[in-house]
């Protein structure tokens, strides 16, 4: 099981702040993304339309990063603080 968080425009678009997902023993972020996209057409479309960043355990990562049960993943749009 992993925890997945969504922020800002992505969170609003998906109408989802956080969810839990059962994953294989260890897989890549891209596999998690595929799994999320299969949820519905809206999820499929949202993830393919927007430029997104991802973080594993609160560190910026990429699609090749290995994810393990117990991890916290997050997806979000490019940042705009400051």
């Amino acid at each position: 099981m992993i925890k997945i968080l969504f922020f800002a425009a992505l969170r609003e678009r998906l109408q989802c702040r956080e969810l839990e997902l059962v994953i294989a023993q260890s897989c890549q972020v891209r596999d998690v993304l595929n799994q999320l996209q299969q949820q519905s057409e809206k999820w499929q479309q949202t993830f393919s339309e927007q430029q997104l960043l991802c973080a594993r355990n609160q560190q910026i990562c990429n699609l090749d990063t290995i994810v393990q049960p117990g991890d916290e993943l997050a997806f979000f749009p490019p940042v705009t603080g400051g």
């Binding site: 425009a9 973080a55 910026i60 997050a74 979000f76 490019p78 940042v79 705009t80 603080g81 400051g82």
Partner: peptide, 20 residues
């Protein structure tokens, strides 16, 4: 900070709201 820290701004205008 402007390119790496996970912060996001949403603007509320008279005409509506959107994410910057």
């Amino acid at each position: 900070l402007k390119t790496k820290a996970p912060l996001w701004k949403k603007q509320h205008l008279v005409t509506g709201s959107d994410w910057i």
